[in-house]
């Protein structure tokens, strides 16, 4: 077909529909849609449990039952509570904060597939999808932090100035989780089987993160194994929460490293996700 309009002046006023944008421009476009990124999980949360009998109570019920099961197995039967003061609070801090990480990564993995309809209807930076799913998990975590605070008070823990550091700890934790969600989202979009594998990885990592029993129990075998175990940012992140609330010690080296690793996971995850931006939403 001939197009005499190829020499048309007005063609120079056109721009390509799909362009490669810099990371800075991309982040700016995500920021411009921040209200959307927040509204989406809010609406989801409002409607998700409407049809179950106890409704939104399950946002609290689920992690509390999980903590109850771990208390039975690890506290009562296996004696993992020996040498740990206030084991119940110590345990729920670990369980709730680790569950936030695993729920965020799993949610990230399924987010692109479950938002297919939305992505076929509206054009927006696709990073919004895993970001809003991460915000959704943080919203329910807010209630769980309330439960931790109540349990801490009830067991005689006095409020401390350390609690003021919560935003900083949350920031590190969320950076790590969001980075993980980005990576899982892209991997799962490429190979749908990833979603089936992630729970096993997360479960193994849970036993290596000092959630139900002290990490000391798996340390002391070989020097380099110990180093690897302590490099897991979740060990330090959970230690931060316990230090804030219970005053238990934090290992300085791994703690500093975890902050850098969390940042690195976020930066890598974001770049990894955005590199496939134009692929998400294909039928």
């Amino acid at each position: 077909m001939e197009h005499e309009a190829d020499t048309d002046d007005s063609a120079s006023a056109l721009r390509p529909l799909v362009t490669d944008v810099s990371a800075r421009q991309y982040i700016r476009s995500v920021w411009a849609r921040r209200d959307f990124a927040f509204a989406l999980p809010f609406e989801e949360l409002r409607t998700s449990h409407l049809d179950t009998f106890l409704g939104n109570i399950w946002h609290l019920g689920n992690p509390m039952f999980t903590a109850g099961v771990y208390y039975m197995i690890f506290g009562v039967f296996l004696g993992a509570n020996k040498g740990i003061d206030n084991y119940i609070v110590w345990l729920i801090i670990g369980v709730f904060s680790y569950q936030l990480t695993s729920a965020t990564i799993l949610g990230g993995a399924s987010s692109i597939a479950s938002r297919q309809g939305l992505m076929r209807s509206f054009r927006f930076p696709r990073a919004i999808v895993p970001i809003s799913s991460t915000i959704g998990k943080l919203l329910s975590y807010g209630f769980q932090l309330g439960v931790i605070a109540v349990a801490a008070f009830a067991s005689g823990v006095a409020p401390s100035r350390r609690w003021l550091l919560l935003p900083a700890v949350l920031l590190v934790h969320t950076a790590f989780n969001l980075g993980g969600a980005f990576i899982a989202a892209r991997l799962n979009d490429g190979f749908r089987d990833v979603q089936q594998l992630i729970p096993f990885v997360l479960r193994l990592a849970q036993y290596m993160s000092g959630v139900m029993f002290s990490i000391d129990r798996i340390l002391g075998r070989k020097g380099w194994v110990d180093t690897l175990v302590l490099m897991n940012p979740m060990v330090s992140i959970i230690d931060f929460y316990r230090w804030m609330i219970l005053g238990t010690p934090v290992r300085p080296g791994p703690a500093v490293l975890s902050v850098f690793l969390a940042g690195a996971v976020l930066v890598f995850g974001f770049r990894f996700f955005v590199a496939a931006e134009h692929r998400y939403g294909k039928p």
Partner: peptide, 12 residues
């Protein structure tokens, strides 16, 4: 812009 083209050009 909701379905990425395999090749070709779209200017708007």
């Amino acid at each position: 812009g909701l379905l990425p083209p395999t090749s070709g050009e779209i200017l708007v």
